[in-house]
Amino acid sequence: MTMNNSIELKGLTKRYRDFTLGPVDLTLPGGAVLGLIGENGAGKTTLMKSMLGITRPDGGTVRLLGRDAAAAKGDIGVVLDDCFFYEGLRVKDVDAVLSGVYATWDGALFEAYLHKFSLDGAKQVKALSRGMRMKLSLAAALAHRPKLLVLDEATAGLDPVVRDEILDEFLNFVSDEEHAVLLSSHITSDLEKIADYIAYLHKGQLVLHDEKDRLLEEYGRLVCGGGELAEIEPSYLVGTRKGRFSAEALVRDREAFCRAYPKLTVERVTLDDIMVFVNREEQV
């Protein structure tokens, strides 16, 4: 175990009757943001819940901040895809509740976040919009000065302005090298903006896990004719999409591919492209 690793999962497995997650091996060094991507039902939430001990894993080991998950929870801030405070509670009640849960809770910092996020402490949770509820969850997750943030679809359903504010907050948080963020999201443009690493879960299996920049460099999007596609060495192709007049493909090892096929044009990929074509590779 490297002391710098904020997350270290080895062989993490969770079995349900109709779905199995893993075994997943995953590491996240301190000072970094890991974006977790995957289609609906791929196991992102299950991975986070198993990692945090919300649900019991069937196998594997979990080390968070160099400790067992249970021992590390006091240093972890969690934002799940909803606000879990009862609607009748007032915003400031969260302070009264969580100050009795976290040993390191900082009431003044919570107040500061409320102010920063323009949250009225006297308002009831039910009076808050989805964006404001997520901000409240984030304030609650940050006010005990965590070292690791685990965020499950924390930016889903938010408008671009609020999302940008929240992403800035994550970047501020991770500027400390002891801090790290695990963020699952379907909004891959958010991850392209802030993630250092990307992990792609597909049907419960981790099919990609690498530095984001390396992934975006490694892969390329090829648009060519159907005949040209047929002549390409299959080991370069991750997934293809054929139309009547043209074909598209995700190619790996972009530099080598460009050397081998200098006449073909390969564009930069997005995380969405990688997800779509990796999924297609399996369908083929």
């Binding site: 919300i54 969690v78 799940l80 606000c83 009862y86």
Partner: peptide, 18 residues
Amino acid sequence: SYDHAAKWNLYALALPVS
């Protein structure tokens, strides 16, 4: 009832309590 309405248990298990 309140816990169920807010799905509190899911959140509670992510807190540093057993």
